[in-house]
Simulated assay, not measured.
Amino acid sequence: MALVVGVVLVAGGLWAWRVSGLVDKEIRARYGALPEVESSRLLLRAPVPQDAVAVAATIDAEMLARNGWTKRTARVLVKAVASGHPTPGLLVFESWSDGTLVGCATVHPSNSDASSRTLGWWIGPRHRRAGYASEAVAALVEAIHDAGFTIIEIGTAESNLAVQRICARIGATEVDRRAQPLPNGSVVPGIWYEHRRATADMP
């Protein structure tokens, strides 16, 4: 009887492992992981478990408030990095000069179009107002288009002038204004932008 139970448990474990593998494969296919992206000062790459503490250091009260995150949202993200199974679409910004992490980004499938991606980002408190966000976003936009995605969507609160300036700098166009629900349960007036790669056929 013990042998039968053992076989059932092993079989169940193998089945769960196989299903988990299929789910991971499906998620990877849906998110379409980007290759490493380089800019003049930064390497934009997928996080590894050793990054967990540094990722946590990029998340302070200002970041939580601006993005409408809760502390639990942050804990879940950091714990996922530490476990080796980071949130799909998460990237970290590593400084070429000293290897420190200055910020992070998320690149997610858009709800509206399979050829679109939604881009978000944040910079840690020690590295703000140094131009890292503009540099990283410009490099990411180029890489996302190179990966075959026609449209990049960026959403922000009407009060977030820094993101609006970056959108203007990279040539993103405002396409909508609507209420935006946030993870902490609040709802803010939001602005949505689109960035489309210019082609020879476009003016």
Rank of each mutant, 00 (worst) to 15 (best):
M1E: 04
L9T: 12
V10Q: 03
A11V: 11
G12N: 11
D24C: 00
A29G: 03
G32K: 02
A33T: 06
L34W: 07
P35Q: 09
E36G: 12
E38W: 08
S40F: 06
R45Y: 08
R45Q: 03
T58E: 10
D60C: 10
D60L: 12
M63K: 05
L64A: 05
R66D: 15
G89V: 15
G89Q: 14
V92E: 07
F93M: 15
D98M: 01
V107F: 07
H108G: 06
N111Y: 13
D113I: 04
D113H: 10
S115K: 11
R117N: 05
G124V: 10
R128E: 01
R128Y: 07
A133I: 05
A136N: 04
A138C: 01
A138Q: 06
V141K: 02
D146P: 01
A147F: 06
F149G: 02
T150H: 12
I151W: 07
I152Q: 03
I154H: 04
G155A: 13
G155L: 05
V163W: 00
C167E: 00
I170D: 00
T173Y: 07
E174R: 15
V175L: 02
P181K: 10
N184E: 01
V188Y: 11
I191D: 01
I191F: 06
W192Y: 14
Y193H: 10
H195A: 11
T199H: 09
D201Q: 01
M202I: 04
P203W: 11
